[in-house]
Design a protein around this nucleic acid. Structure first.
Length: 550
RNA sequence: GGUCCCAUGGUCAAUCGGUUAAGACGCGACCCUCUCAAGGUCGAAUGACUGGUUCAACUCCAGUUGGGAUCACCA
């Protein structure tokens, strides 16, 4: 046994498996030509980030449309930042957006043959690989304390050298076998570092699916691959996991580009073929004239829950994100009159390389279109579900009289160009509250918003006349009546007449209709008045007309 | 600071050397209309800068500028 062999055995006596065993345990996947294996690999450190949803959507779409496999892996190696229960939240929220992994970690148990899919359950796999690296002299124990590392960094700063644990600064890289054994046996804490043979004077390149060829300095840092808690760092876990999970393409945020040389260095040392990479742009936000990444701390819209709490249909956010991912999607939706994300052919190569500013207006536009196009029953069910979770007062009214709410939601819905009033479910109740007598009464008692063009007596007389309006008739019959009332009170029934000679009239027909609208609705805007009146019913309308006279 | 990524209207962006430089959101005007939400028509608004290659550059190259990312026992 040579020294490396002995060192490996001293450090990891419990590891009996070899890399060859792992290769057998996780055989190459038998997939059709071109099928991609992708993965979404979040840390369970909080709720789903809008940018993560974007990444997850791209990963899963890319895999599914290529006939491949989309995997979910939980990267929980940072035990200090792990938040209890956030694994479930992440998975639930993704599922709410229809993003469900073909295989991977699920709180109720793994699915798939390439697990475990939770990194904290894979410690022995990482150690198996590390043990072999030590045997080959490509990894070694490092005994530096945080203070030692600080000291090294200070010297580097003074000398204006590149920071990092490399070359002459890699203090424990060339420790003798005896020194290592002595420290280990003394119980000195250690981490395992990768022994890089790279040279930062040299370049390394790789092809990014979105950006094309990227050339970077070679890695020459002896990065930590196994932390003192026995868990791997991201760099090492990525290489090992994506190798043995047989990932074909790693989709991750562009912030990973600078550390890709480390990953390439590791792949090379292990003699493995690197995965393909697609580095996705970040979603940005304008802050004091500067673009910056959406920040969970500063921007409520950085958390997917923000959109859910506001009552955006999940479909709307996905459609918006897809329009960022592939701008041709938007034209496709118009040409195909469809928002079906599965029917659209997504292309990872056509993704834009720069980060888009999050555009709330555009999201609202898509959301309005999507809600307007939903069949009534579907919309009602979703509104009800939303109200149940977020608006108890509205929910109580829905439960009390569901059909009444359906009638309200149905206003203008069956037209060729359906009404587009709502971008999110929280928009609804404020816009329709006047349909409820007590809400109307509050407004009426506070004072109806008359426009001041007519005297109180005139208004009273006109409202009195409206009381004999027909109910249960078609709109034309009803509207003829409105015109009669208007004419009788000196309103111009034709807009042309009014414009030609405004002084001759009390106002246009709009002004006349506005009196009725304000009296019954309590505000100057509403959907089609005839439909509103029919839904309210004669008794309530008469009651309101009477009340409005005060 | 080193390294890398990015650069077409306010926003998302098409163009794979030759176009009157698409389209969408937003914005404005007009039309329709009982108001509003829509819908229709029209409109304003874009190649950061400087060189080079080429018959021809938004497109290729270099530099400048600007923005972003990254330099941990965090991912």
């Amino acid at each position: 046994m040579d020294h490396n062999e002995e060192l490996a055995e001293l450090l990891f006596p419990e590891i009996k498996e070899t890399i060859a065993d792992l290769e057998q345990r996780f055989p190459l996947r038998n997939l059709p030509e071109g099928a991609q294996v992708t993965r979404f690999a979040p840390s369970p450190t909080g709720f789903l980030h809008t940018g993560s949803l974007f990444t997850a959507m791209v990963s899963s779409t890319y895999a599914k449309q290529s006939g491949g496999v989309y995997c979910f892996r939980l990267e929980d190696t940072d035990t200090k930042r792990t938040i209890e229960g956030s694994d479930r939240d992440l998975i639930d929220q993704l599922a709410y957006f229809g993003i469900v992994a073909d295989e991977g970690y699920f709180p109720e148990g793994d699915r798939g043959a390439y697990g475990p899919y939770r990194q904290s359950d894979r410690a022995s796999i990482y150690k198996t690989v590390i043990k072999e690296l030590i045997r080959q002299g490509r990894a070694y124990p490092d005994f530096c304390t945080p203070e030692d590392l600080d000291a090294i960094r200070k010297i580097q700063e003074e000398r204006k050298d590149l920071p990092g644990y490399y070359g002459v600064y890699a203090r424990d890289r060339n420790l003798s076998y005896e020194e290592r054994v002595e420290r280990i046996q003394k119980g000195t804490p250690w981490v395992i570092r990768f022994k890089s043979f790279g040279d930062h004077e040299k370049k390394t390149k790789f092809t990014d699916l979105i950006r094309g060829e990227i050339e970077l300095q070679e890695n020459d840092t002896d990065v930590v691959i196994l932390k003192s808690d026995g868990l791997p760092t991201y760099h090492f876990a990525h290489v090992v996991d994506d190798h043995f999970m047989r990932t074909t393409c790693v989709t991750r945020g562009e912030e990973w580009i600078p550390s890709t040389p480390i990953h390439l260095d590791l792949f090379r040392a292990l003699g493995w073929k690197p995965t393909k990479y697609a580095h996705l742009p970040s979603i940005m936000k304008l802050d004091n004239g500067n673009k910056r990444k959406l920040s969970k701390r500063k921007d409520p819209e950085a958390a997917v829950s923000y959109f859910l709490d506001a009552g955006y249909p999940p479909e709307a956010l996905k459609v918006y994100l897809m329009s960022i991912a592939n701008s041709s999607f938007e034209e496709w939706t118009i040409a195909n009159k469809s928002f079906d994300l599965n029917a659209f052919k997504f292309s990872i190569k056509k993704m834009s390389a720069d980060g888009a500013l999050f555009d709330m207006d555009k999201l609202n536009y898509f959301a309005r279109e999507i809600i307007a196009k939903m069949p009534l029953e579907e919309e009602f069910a979703l509104v009800r579900e939303y109200a149940q979770a977020h608006e108890p007062a509205f929910f109580a009214r829905i439960e009390e009289n569901p059909n009444y709410v359906k009638k309200i939601l149905n206003i203008g819905k069956q037209d060729k160009n359906p009404r587009k009033d709502y971008a999110k479910y929280s928009d609804i109740y404020p816009l329709i509250s006047f349909f409820y007598a007590d809400e109307y009464d509050k407004v009426a008692e506070a004072g109806l918003p008359w426009n001041g063009k007519l005297s109180h007596e005139e208004i009273v007389a006109i409202l009195e006349a409206f009381k004999s309006m027909p109910f249960g008739t078609d709109e034309n019959t009803w509207f003829s009546f409105i015109k009669e009332v208007g004419a009788a009170h000196r309103f111009a029934i034709s807009n042309k007449d009014y414009k030609a000679n405004p002084e001759a009239y009390a106002g246009s027909l709009s002004d006349c209709a506005e009196l009725l609208r304000i009296a019954v609705v309590g505000r100057a805007q509403s959907p089609n008045l005839h439909e509103v009146l029919e839904i309210l019913g004669q008794a309530e309308v008469l009651r309101r007309l009477e009340k409005a006279k005060r």
